[in-house]
């Protein structure tokens, strides 16, 4: 694996279905790659011709009885802290909801045809991939109708993440388009719409 790929790797698939998957990584490796609302991709074909595209909607840090006892100690010294984070294999689980897939050059905003296999590498989408994926808004419906995820916060986080993939000159228009799309989808629930719009409202200097 190249240094670049290592840097972009979020984790490896633990369990999966067509609606989403959980991936795991070591506790010591958590960083800005593991961010709520990030776009990730994972291969769903052996020849890497197709990828499922998903959004990180939960990051869970597992515990164990030893970690619980250490928390009870008055002081945790540095060696123990390093030992727990680097040596002990307490995994971090990252939950992802699928919002689309790519097949060759095609981008489809619907559930992927098959889930990724166990231990497949999950990677962050590049700026270009986010840019091309978010030029359409069909994935909004998938997120808003998912019952097991905090959909309003997740969609807002995804839109904010996606906005940074756009050149500064297009960013404001992108956010306005997202707002219009949300207004269509949530016209029956004005309270909810107002909350999501507040979450994605662009700063006045983003124009």
């Amino acid at each position: 694996m190249s240094v670049q790929e290592e840097r972009e790797m979020v984790g490896r698939v633990l369990r999966a279905s067509t609606t989403g998957f959980d991936c795991g990584t070591r506790g010591s490796r958590i960083d800005e790659r593991h961010t709520f609302g990030s776009f990730v991709k994972v291969p769903i074909a052996d020849d890497f011709s197709a990828f499922a595209i998903g959004l990180i909607y939960a990051i869970r840090i597992e515990d164990d009885p030893l970690a619980r006892e250490l928390v009870m100690a008055s002081i945790i010294d540095n060696s123990v802290l390093l030992d727990q984070r680097e040596n002990r294999m307490v995994p971090i689980e990252i939950a992802v909801i699928n919002v689309g897939y790519t097949s060759g050059a095609d981008v489809v905003q619907a559930l992927p045809p098959r889930p990724p296999l166990s231990l497949s590498e999950v990677q962050l989408c590049s700026t270009d991939e986010i840019y091309y994926f978010t030029r359409r808004f069909d994935y909004f419906r998938v997120v808003l109708s998912a019952s097991e995820v905090p959909s309003d916060e997740l969609l807002a986080a995804a839109v904010r993440t996606a906005a940074w993939a756009y050149p500064e000159s297009e960013r404001y228009n992108f956010l306005v388009h997202c707002g219009r799309q949300l207004a269509n989808l949530l016209s029956h629930d004005l309270k909810r719409l107002s909350r999501v719009l507040a979450l994605i409202k662009p700063d006045t200097n983003v124009q």
Binding site: L66, E69, L70, M72
Partner: peptide, 18 residues
């Protein structure tokens, strides 16, 4: 023996056992 909070046992031995 003070490292593991309420459990008074050498941390190094707990880890070796693990």
């Amino acid at each position: 023996c003070s490292i593991q909070g309420r459990r008074h046992y050498p941390y190094a031995l707990t880890r070796a056992d693990e």
